[in-house]
Simulated assay, not measured.
Amino acid sequence: MNTTTDRRVALVTGGSGGIGSAVVDRLTQDGCAVAIHYAGNSERAETAAASIRHAGGEAITVAGDVADEAAMAAAFDATEAAFGGVDVVVNTAGIMLLGPIATFDLAELDRMHRVNIRGTFVVSQLAANRLRSGGALINVSTSVTRTQLPTYGPYTASKAAVEGITLILARELRGRDITVNAVAPGPTATPLFLDGKDETAIANLAQAAPLERLGTPADAAEAIAFLAGPAGRWINGQVIFSNGGMA
């Protein structure tokens, strides 16, 4: 564990996005110092960091392509330089492109898998080598690995890989006191999810769960914060489905 201070340090990839920004807010509430990673939206990330600092918290921003190992090593370097180490890595960065498997554009498949698979692998590899004892890595999957909705095949393939990376890394880190888990949200009202869907499609997906609503970024953030904190230390090598009871 981090013995120099009770403050934990978290690096959140995609920290300026829908679920990512909710995770940043939630971990800040738990007293974490946060490094907010972004790939393109510097203004949103800088605004969030400034707001946290104004409220008395600790936050920096770090940039880079998650699939670029040099850029992400630099993000870890900057986090360690600012706060002394890294205790929590939350990997929310990802893209979702939908379409039937039979006609899906392979260039788009490569683009999505570069972010979702290679990006998760790069960040997980760095976390495996640089998280302090007592640390936690939380990757983000999707409940569609279980619900198998049409047109989600290419995206689900990438997230099934995320789950495989997560579950095996948890076993490989035996003896390090580092937990590795994934959270698999169901339909969640983020710009990534809502893009391209009409009101009927959104309403149908909202009714799919027994709780009869879409998830919110805060719902996913609560599960992630649990895994990142002291109450989640006995949860390891698991995929937590945060989806309101979808099958």
Rank of each mutant, 00 (worst) to 15 (best):
D177M: 03
A170M: 01
A184H: 02
I165W: 05
P187Y: 00
I202Y: 04
D198E: 11
T200A: 15
A206P: 12
E163S: 02
R174C: 05
R176H: 14
E163M: 01
G164M: 05
F193S: 04
F193M: 06
T179C: 06
A201Q: 15
D198G: 14
A182K: 08
L167R: 12
N181D: 07
L167T: 12
N204T: 14
V162E: 07
P185L: 04
T179Q: 10
G196Q: 09
R174G: 10
E172Q: 15
E199R: 13
L194Y: 11
N204S: 15
L173N: 14
P185R: 04
A189S: 15
L169E: 15
L167G: 03
G186E: 04
T190R: 00
T200Y: 05
P191Q: 11
V180F: 07
E199G: 08
D198Q: 13
I165S: 03
A161H: 00
D177W: 00
L173Q: 13
T166Y: 02
A182E: 10
L192W: 07
A161S: 10
A182R: 08
A189N: 11
E163L: 02
V180P: 10
A170R: 06
T179G: 03
A182Q: 10
I165Q: 06
I165K: 03
A182S: 15
A203N: 04
A201V: 15
R171W: 00
T200F: 04
A203L: 05
G164Q: 11
V183D: 04
N204I: 09
V162R: 01
V183E: 07
D177V: 07
A182T: 14
I165M: 08
N181W: 02
L169Q: 15
N181C: 13
G164I: 03
L205T: 08
I178P: 11
F193L: 07
R174F: 10
G175N: 05
A189M: 06
I202T: 14
A184F: 02
L167E: 05
V183K: 03
G196E: 10
A182V: 08
L173W: 11
E199T: 15
D177G: 04
K197I: 08
L169I: 10
L173V: 14
D198I: 13
R174Y: 11
L169K: 05
G175C: 07
A201N: 11
L205H: 06
G175Q: 03
R171E: 11
A203H: 06
T200P: 05
A160D: 11
T179R: 12
K197G: 07
A161T: 03
T188E: 09
G186Q: 00
V183Y: 03
V162Q: 06
P187M: 00
T179F: 01
L205D: 14
I165H: 01
D177N: 14
A201H: 09
I202M: 05
A201I: 07
A160R: 11
E199V: 12
V180W: 02
G196R: 08
T200G: 13
K159P: 04
A203T: 12
E172C: 06
G164N: 07
L194M: 15
R171M: 03
F193E: 04
